[in-house]
Computed example of a mutant assay.
Amino acid sequence: MSTAMGGPRVAVLRSEDRAAPLAHALVEAGAVPVLCPLIANELPADPEQRVFLAEQLAALAEGHFAWVAFTSVSTVRALVAIAGEAGEGQDTALKVSAVTKVAAVGKATARALEAAGVTVDLLPHAEHSARGLLAEWPVPEDTAFAAVLLPAADLAAPTLRDGLLERGWRPVDLMAYRTVDAPGDPELLLSVPVPGQPAVAAPSGLERLSPAELAAALAAGTLDAAILTSPSTARRVAVLLDGRESATGFIAIGPRTAKEALAHGLRVDAVAKTTDPAGLAGALAAREAAERKQP
């Protein structure tokens, strides 16, 4: 379906603070983004949890961990925010000891870490996911120094933790932020910008939908595609559809999100090869090209 602007209408369901770069990438690919944030990211509300986070960051800086793994850009942002609260400065305050190796799940996460002054030692080549990290993770050389810090969202899957346990590592879970339904609590929202990425506004004049309007559009097929950037977003879409079938196909950011979408009856038309905005826009473009070739 084409619009007055000439391109497919694509729903961007990412949180408000992360939607703009993806919207720009879609515009560059010839699509017309439609904004409807379904989830938001919040820092922990419990003061004791914030203190615990700061203590774990201090331990990370002091070399108490053999590895630390970052599985999203949001995790980097959350730890930068907590480090700033702890009085260690702002934006580039995330400190990792020289004895600790750093793993990043994908290129966007690696770029955010490096912009924050953190060197990345492991970036999976084949698959940018927890499975991809595990496929390339080494075995521990010293079981006495085998602790791995795993900062992540409250809804993070245990894939990486369980795999590391099987390989003889000692994973330490750390809840860095919470995933909630949008719009979230303004006092707790994760508002720290992505390190190294200037704050950008979404393209002007974009259409916005409420969650109810989104569900109706998906069911009616008046959108050409919707982009799922996390398993929690897929679950939220399924709740909004409330048993209705979506006539609109979905683009998934990675295999885990695609699996979650399929488990909830959502049709996945494409899975991005990389998790950055360019990768998502490329997956949409590839789907559009494949559809044009069909008789």
Results as ranks from 00 to 15, higher is better:
M1F: 09
M5C: 08
R9F: 00
R14Y: 07
E16M: 02
A19C: 03
A19N: 13
A23F: 11
V32N: 01
V34N: 00
L35R: 11
L38A: 05
A40Q: 15
N41V: 02
E48H: 15
Q49R: 15
Q49P: 00
R50H: 04
E55P: 02
A58R: 15
F65H: 11
V68Q: 09
S72K: 05
S72L: 06
S74W: 05
T75N: 10
T75F: 13
V80K: 12
A81K: 14
A81L: 06
A86L: 07
G87L: 08
Q90Y: 06
D91H: 13
A93Y: 11
L94A: 03
V96A: 01
S97W: 02
V99F: 01
A110P: 01
A115W: 10
A116M: 06
G117N: 00
D121F: 06
A126G: 10
A126R: 14
G132D: 12
L133K: 00
E141R: 14
A144T: 12
A146D: 07
A147E: 13
L149G: 04
P151E: 08
P158H: 09
G168A: 06
R170E: 12
D173C: 13
L174Q: 12
A176Q: 08
Y177N: 11
Y177L: 07
T179K: 10
A182R: 13
G184C: 12
L188W: 13
L190R: 14
P193V: 02
V194C: 11
S204M: 08
L209K: 09
A215H: 06
A216I: 00
A217C: 07
L218Q: 03
A220C: 02
G221T: 03
T222G: 11
L223T: 12
L223R: 06
A225R: 12
A226R: 02
R235S: 12
L240W: 07
L241T: 04
G243Q: 13
R244L: 12
A247Y: 04
E260Q: 05
E260M: 14
A261G: 09
G265E: 13
R267H: 03
V268T: 07
V271N: 04
A272T: 03
L280K: 09
G282M: 11
R287H: 15
R287T: 09
R287L: 15
A289S: 12
A289E: 14
A289P: 04
A289F: 04
E291S: 13
K293H: 14
